[in-house]
Simulated assay, not measured.
Amino acid sequence: MSKRVAILTSGGDAPGMNACIRAVIIACQKANYTLIGYKHGYNGLLQQEYISLSLDSTHNLIQQGGTILHSARCEEFKTREGVFKAAKNLDKAEIDTLIVIGGDGSFRGAETLGEEWDGQILGIPGTIDNDIGGTDATIGYFTAIDTAMSSIDKVRDTADAFERIFLVEVMGRNAGFLALNAALSAAADYVVVPEFFESPDVEVTKIVSQIKAQRALKGPVSFIVVVAENVWPNGLNGLTEALQHHHINDVRPVTLGHVQRGGSPVAQDRLLATTLGEFAVSLVGSDITNIMVGEVNQRPVTVPLPKTWENAKPLNVARVDAMLTLMNERYNNV
């Protein structure tokens, strides 16, 4: 019997969401499933705002950033009444399987929905923050690294021209994956991530010490500090003031902001999105539900939704070691 599948994108957008939607459309078409797309995340589910998705929707879709279904936060869905309404709407639309592309908040909402709705729920990790447990990477993460790296490269040009210190804030919510990998790939001089942040006093002492050590060896040269968002009290302004308190005044803060969410997805995100989309559809109609599909060691896996947020996802140890070694080498072995 043909299945009716619904898909939505929720929370922050991420490059590669469209590539994933494309893969789901094609896989559903091949399996003879009817597919609809709810618009504006869980808002569309509450308002029964959906569109039919067919092969006509896939033209030139894999390379587009953003999401053709649009995305949004949904306060109503956080209430018990909202969850009841969503479950009722899914039944009215005769949906057998709901696929949710999103991050931590989207998955928590899907888990709550699963307590009230008897249908199948499958999550696909789509967030530039890469803070979802149970998968090596999330859709959009690789593109965001490239975007941040490119921006830091440009900042380096003007930093070198004026021999200034630049503070570059990148996204990541409460995780340092994007900051660490952008800093490492752009050869930044220092990185501040929540996983290893002790206190403002300890951290600013380290930064000041390394700035002074480098300038003692090479004179007034540029210095790039990459900072993960939500780490430093009062953000980059707080760090700028802390450095000025130590008589380091040639400081310029730069917040990359939402530019990191945009752009055409790089190959790694297109491949991950396509793989996870196809794998999710292969599970439609099975007894597996309330899970996320992810990828570990280049193999698709299923993970119970609560396992995706119960434990903080650790940073790659090898990348951390590389960053620490290169930061120290910059000052000790010039």
Rank of each mutant, 00 (worst) to 15 (best):
R156D: 12
R156N: 10
R156Q: 14
D157W: 02
D157T: 15
D157H: 09
D157M: 08
D157V: 14
T158P: 03
A159G: 10
A159I: 08
D160W: 05
D160T: 07
D160S: 12
D160E: 12
A161I: 07
A161K: 05
F162Y: 15
F162K: 09
E163N: 15
E163Y: 13
E163W: 05
E163T: 13
R164F: 06
R164L: 13
I165A: 08
I165W: 06
F166G: 00
F166E: 10
V168D: 03
V168S: 04
V168H: 03
E169S: 12
E169V: 11
E169F: 10
V170R: 02
V170D: 02
V170G: 02
M171N: 05
G172M: 04
G172T: 10
G172W: 07
G172N: 09
G172L: 09
G172K: 08
R173T: 14
R173V: 14
R173G: 01
R173I: 08
R173N: 08
N174W: 13
N174E: 14
N174H: 15
N174G: 12
N174D: 15
A175G: 10
A175N: 13
A175W: 09
F177K: 01
F177Q: 06
F177L: 07
L178K: 02
L178D: 04
L178Y: 05
A179P: 03
A179C: 08
A179Y: 03
A179K: 02
L180P: 00
L180D: 00
L180A: 05
L180C: 06
N181S: 11
N181D: 13
N181Y: 05
N181F: 04
N181V: 01
N181C: 04
A182S: 15
A182K: 02
A183P: 02
A183Y: 05
A183W: 03
A183L: 09
L184M: 10
L184K: 12
L184S: 09
L184C: 11
S185M: 13
S185V: 15
S185L: 10
A186H: 01
A187N: 09
A187D: 11
A187E: 12
A188Q: 06
A188L: 06
D189I: 00
D189H: 12
D189S: 11
Y190R: 11
Y190H: 13
Y190C: 05
Y190A: 06
V191D: 02
V192N: 03
V192R: 01
V192E: 03
V192P: 01
V193K: 03
V193W: 04
V193N: 04
V193L: 09
V193P: 00
P194W: 11
P194Y: 10
E195W: 13
E195P: 06
E195G: 05
F196M: 12
F197A: 07
F197T: 06
E198K: 15
E198T: 14
E198W: 00
E198I: 12
E198N: 10
S199V: 07
P200F: 08
D201K: 15
D201M: 10
D201P: 00
D201R: 14
D201G: 10
V202A: 13
V202L: 11
E203G: 05
E203Q: 14
E203K: 13
V204A: 00
V204H: 01
V204S: 06
T205I: 09
T205D: 15
T205F: 10
T205E: 09
K206A: 14
K206T: 13
I207P: 00
I207K: 03
I207S: 00
I207N: 01
V208C: 07
V208E: 13
S209N: 15
Q210T: 12
Q210N: 14
